[in-house]
Simulated scan of single mutants.
Amino acid sequence: MIRSGLPAPGLVPVALALAVALLAGCATSSKDAEMSGTFEGPPVAIGQGQAWTFVTLDEQGKAQTLGIRLSEEALSGLPADVPPSGAWEYDLQLPAEAAALGYDHVTLDWNPHGHIPEGVYDSPHFDFHFYAIDHSARDEITLDAASLERARKAPETDYMPEGYALPPGTEVPKMGAHAIDPSSSEFNGEPFTKTFIYGFYDGKVIFVEPMMTLDYLASRPDESIPVKQPAAYEKGFAYPTSYGIRFDKMGKRYEVTLEGLARR
């Protein structure tokens, strides 16, 4: 009998099927690799350094973390005077890969002398606003009579995060009203270090805001703090279940992040 080097006729279809499957698997892995990773927005000068946004996607292209990075030098040389608006606002553009989360842009606000209420938030600190509305919508928050009424409109009970309150006097132009957690340490005899704010306008959440002192951020923390949730969610953006504050020694940068993001 003469033996050839060719496979038996019945094995050819099986071999072809395996080859196709292998190629398809390689293509899928390649596609997943392209979808996953960390994507950054353009940097903006702040202090003696820079700040920029970033988003991290898993292999299915779903966002895991949205945040702001500040170079180590950004905490030095910050403005010491107070502008007419009360805070120095740095507008940060989000990377296109973050679009599915429903946030439009982010601002980093530097408050050299803090802000109200006196004795609570009047130390030098940063406000990190993650806005679910665009700039034109923010410009409509003028706090004239009609706008002030909308800013003071309380949300339906289920949309207020557990334990939060919307006190009068927290309305700010281009921001709206600020809901605070009265159980936070700064309202219970301890110095302010960090906290989490929900922003409302016309009864709806329009931003979420980690807020922290310059000294606390400069201490190079490594924390993930749970975020209290409402019973019902706005559909327009992804709520975080926690926020992180860390210093990346390798990258020599600070990170303030929204974590556990999900659109519900």
Results as ranks from 00 to 15, higher is better:
Lys228Val: 01
Phe187Tyr: 15
Gln93Glu: 14
Thr65Met: 07
Asp215Gln: 14
Tyr233Arg: 08
Ala218Phe: 06
Gly5Tyr: 11
Pro43Gln: 15
Arg138Ala: 03
Lys62Asn: 15
Leu143His: 12
Leu94Lys: 06
Ser36Trp: 08
Ala51Asn: 07
Gln64Ala: 10
Pro13Leu: 11
Asp127Phe: 04
Gln48Val: 00
Asp32Glu: 15
Pro84Arg: 13
Arg246Tyr: 00
Leu11Lys: 03
Leu23Tyr: 12
Asp58Tyr: 13
Glu97Gly: 00
Gly169Tyr: 07
Phe196Lys: 06
Gly176Lys: 08
Ala238Phe: 04
Phe207Asp: 05
Arg263Pro: 00
Phe207Lys: 09
Ser136Leu: 12
Pro7Phe: 00
His115Trp: 13
Gln50Trp: 00
Thr157His: 09
Glu223Leu: 13
Val44Phe: 00
Ser4Pro: 01
Leu70Tyr: 08
Ile206Ala: 04
Ile116Thr: 12
Glu59Gly: 08
Ala154Asp: 04
Val208Gly: 00
Ile245His: 01
Gly37Gln: 11
Gly37His: 09
Met211Val: 14
His105Asn: 14
Leu258Asp: 01
Lys204Asn: 11
Cys26Ala: 15
Phe130Thr: 04
Ala45Trp: 01
Ser185Asp: 15
Leu101Tyr: 12
Leu23Ile: 15
Ala232Gln: 11
Phe192Val: 09
Gly41Tyr: 07
Ser85Glu: 10
Phe39Ser: 03
Ala177Gln: 12
Ala238Arg: 11
Tyr121Val: 06
Phe39Cys: 08
Ile116Cys: 03
Pro210Thr: 04
Ala177Cys: 14
Lys249Arg: 06
Glu40Gln: 09
Ala80Leu: 12
Thr28Gly: 08
Ala132Gln: 14
Phe247Asp: 05
Ile206Asp: 05
Glu59Cys: 03
Val205His: 03
Ala218Cys: 08
Ala165His: 01
Leu261His: 07
Gln50Ala: 06
Tyr243Gln: 02
Ile46Trp: 07
Pro161Lys: 10
Ala33Pro: 08
Asp109Gln: 12
Ala231Asn: 05
Tyr164Ser: 03
Gly260Gln: 04
Gly86Trp: 02
Arg69Trp: 08
Tyr164Asp: 04
Asp109Thr: 04
Glu259Trp: 04
Ser224Thr: 04
Ile225Trp: 03
Pro240Ala: 09
Asn188Gln: 14
Met211Gln: 11
Leu6Lys: 13
Gly25Cys: 06
Gly102Asp: 14
